[in-house]
Structures are given as structure tokens and as C-alpha cells.
């Protein structure tokens, strides 16, 4: 594993957080690591929704079980975390 820096832009937050995530982790794990720094701090929790990871530059929504290292993101590249139904 390697810790990889991403820029986390959680839906509803006013800033983007730099978050270190394990590049072996799945997108659900990435979402959890990102939520930790925004949801419940500056963004209200939405227990009925799940957070999906979306590449900011292309709008591509990643599969939930995809590994971060397969996404080909640049270090510090920005992803949006979107509250979704599924």
C-alpha cells in the first residue's frame, strides 16, 4: 500500500480538503476518508445517502468497488464526493 494525496471536494462544503488515502482502498473507502474531514464538521450528515466519488475534471463517477490506484489520478487531483441514492 501507499498513501496517496487527493483533493476532496465534498458536496455542500465551502472548501476542498487534502486527504491522504491508501491507494489499495476502494472508492467506498476513499469516500469514507474524505467524509471524515467534512461531514459532521461543516456539512450535515445525510444518513439516507451514500457518498460516491466523481473525478472533478471529467465528471466520471467511479464504481464503488474500484481501487483508487486503478483510477489513474494525479497526486492532489480533485475528486467530488456526491451524496447519491446508490
Amino acid at each position: 500500500m501507499a498513501m496517496f494525496p487527493i483533493a476532496s471536494n465534498v458536496e455542500g462544503d465551502m472548501a476542498i480538503m487534502v486527504v491522504m488515502v491508501d491507494d489499495e482502498g476502494t472508492m467506498d473507502e476513499v469516500a469514507k476518508a474524505c467524509a471524515y474531514h467534512s461531514v459532521g464538521r461543516r456539512v450535515a450528515p445525510r444518513p439516507d445517502k451514500i457518498l460516491r466519488v466523481r473525478r472533478s475534471s471529467t465528471g466520471e463517477v467511479y464504481p464503488r468497488d474500484m481501487r483508487l490506484k486503478e483510477a489513474g489520478l494525479l497526486p492532489t487531483e480533485c475528486v467530488d464526493l456526491i451524496f447519491s441514492d446508490a
Partner: peptide, 19 residues
């Protein structure tokens, strides 16, 4: 905070928007 915000490489202040 437990981590740092992304900063702008021109203004050097946090990249922000409307929440």
C-alpha cells in the same frame, strides 16, 4: 481541523466556494 485545505497556487489562500 485534522487535515489541511487545498490552497490556490496564485492567491495562496484556500480554494473556496458557496456551501
Amino acid at each position: 481541523p485534522e487535515t489541511l485545505p487545498l490552497l490556490c497556487n496564485m492567491s495562496n489562500v484556500p480554494i473556496v466556494g458557496t456551501p
